[in-house]
Design a protein around this nucleic acid. Sequence first.
DNA 1: CGCGATTTGTGCACACCTTCACAAGCGCCT
DNA 2: AGGCGCTTGTGAAGGTGTGCACAAATCGCG
Lengths: 252, 252
Amino acid sequence: MSQQRHGSTPGNAPGDRAGAVTAFPDLPEATIARLPEYLRALHNLGEGGADTVSSEGLAAAAGVNSAKLRKDLSHLGSYGTRGVGYDVALLIEQIEYVLGLDQRRAVCLVGLGNLGHALAGYDGFASRGFKIVALFDADVSKVGEEIQGLTVRHIEDLGRVAVEENIAIGVIATPAGAAQTVADVLVDAGVTSILNFAPCVLSVPANVDVRKVDLAIELQILSFHEHRKASLTALPGGRSATAAGNQEAVGS
Amino acid sequence: MSQQRHGSTPGNAPGDRAGAVTAFPDLPEATIARLPEYLRALHNLGEGGADTVSSEGLAAAAGVNSAKLRKDLSHLGSYGTRGVGYDVALLIEQIEYVLGLDQRRAVCLVGLGNLGHALAGYDGFASRGFKIVALFDADVSKVGEEIQGLTVRHIEDLGRVAVEENIAIGVIATPAGAAQTVADVLVDAGVTSILNFAPCVLSVPANVDVRKVDLAIELQILSFHEHRKASLTALPGGRSATAAGNQEAVGS
DNA sequence: CGCGATTTGTGCACACCTTCACAAGCGCCT
DNA sequence: AGGCGCTTGTGAAGGTGTGCACAAATCGCG
Ligand SMILES: NC(=O)c1ccc[n+]([C@@H]2O[C@H](COP(=O)([O-])OP(=O)(O)OC[C@H]3O[C@@H](n4cnc5c(N)ncnc54)[C@H](O)[C@@H]3O)[C@@H](O)[C@H]2O)c1
Ligand SMILES: NC(=O)c1ccc[n+]([C@@H]2O[C@H](COP(=O)([O-])OP(=O)(O)OC[C@H]3O[C@@H](n4cnc5c(N)ncnc54)[C@H](O)[C@@H]3O)[C@@H](O)[C@H]2O)c1
């Protein structure tokens, strides 16, 4: 769900009902949230030498139900072959196209503290179709610092650089108190997608998408389940452990 | 959704149908995922000096619909007062109890690379009911390093330390290739909740909850929306910008 | 060339979630 | 004491997502 309503009413554009050049077959949110997982599983399988995968196999690798996977793929008009499965390379291409990963998107990172440094040094960006093209901070003692070949710039330059570099995605790694201000700056600069690590709610215009990653929330959800499990363990004796039991890891 | 089915069939425990001491009024997953957000908003409001909040006000601060918020709170039998609103302090207490935050949970962190260092230095743990009590790594050159007052231990010690410190939650910040192995070790040690930062699917016994944080997935979802927005902007002239427009930030 | 094994794509039923709309309850003011 | 405005709690409706089960399609083999 995130927190942003995206398109206005999707309503079928009256007029060109012939060529579906315009929009996407409006995929369900739940589906698009799973596509990246499928993609990763496919890359793993491909590196493992597989040419085709069955929905069953891919579903297992992605940790989902196979019917769900088939339905997801059918939504994007995917080309599977009955009796055989899906062509790995083709499916990768398809998903990458739908996700818009064929064009390497420029990302900027704002806030180079603890977390920002880790993110800047993360190779998971480049390996998945993204490129960090600029780093910003408000702290003048940080400006000028070189990280992974990029120089930290002052946030005042964001507007100019964003246009120059055609930045579409901004990542916020500042304290919560500064996040809304930074978001405003990003929006002003024409950035239309924001990934927010600060624990706060951002308000942005309707055409901007925001996704949030919040460590504390994840832990608190886990805490709830711990609490619940503990209250259930009241009766049964101790813990039956059940260690061991795990099959098929993902990677090689 | 995450990826774990939690309790087996919740089925009302046969026998003590009198006192509802046992489990929780099985809150909807969607609700418990929002409780932490409400909690944070409440803390902000409380620090701002508010004694009570209306569902409207709290919903705005948490970025949700007010009807949804009321229904969520009603699920946990919350005590609001019609015509007035919710008592901030009381509601905080309620939610913290439900989430099991009244008991400070011990967390361990495995993998002290780039990300692990940032997490170890993060104060958002302590301020939200969690305490990192141990750090583990497999790299002997990292073992012994002192971070934020904690010494990095070898992962072989995890089993022993987990019991000693009563660790319930484990955070995995190792490369994907090692994540499943680490998860197995955690499970063996009796850890029943895992937060995984590695981009891979973990398989664990049914009684263990796993939540995943995956940066690349978030970015790819944003990329999809960018792609979609771009395909819609084909017709309309340029961008109407709409910068400015934002109201009420969260914090003070 | 036909048959059976295999696997996709999907109709359907169900469960969960969201949102509206409103009655019931509460406190304040006169 | 009574009325009035405000806010909660919830019934009902609609939407979204899930998973089963099966027909349709494809391949390989004899
Ligand atoms: N460290 C973690 O592991 C971690 C984990 C999850 C979430 N977070 C969140 O991420 C955010 C950053 O955490 P951190 O530990 O890196 O904090 P930090 O204090 O180490 O770094 C914050 C950085 O943001 C910069 N900054 C402050 N105001 C700014 C502004 N207006 N414009 C641009 N830059 C600005 C600061 O100069 C600093 O470099 C926080 O909101 C934190 O809650 C951190
Ligand atoms: N750096 C980031 O910003 C970032 C962001 C999102 C996700 N991630 C993910 O988090 C994970 C860690 O990223 P990183 O950049 O810190 O990597 P890193 O290589 O810097 O650190 C990995 C650490 O794990 C340790 N390790 C390896 N195998 C181990 C094992 N079997 N047991 C215990 N420890 C082991 C290594 O010694 C190393 O210290 C990766 O999976 C990465 O994809 C990182």
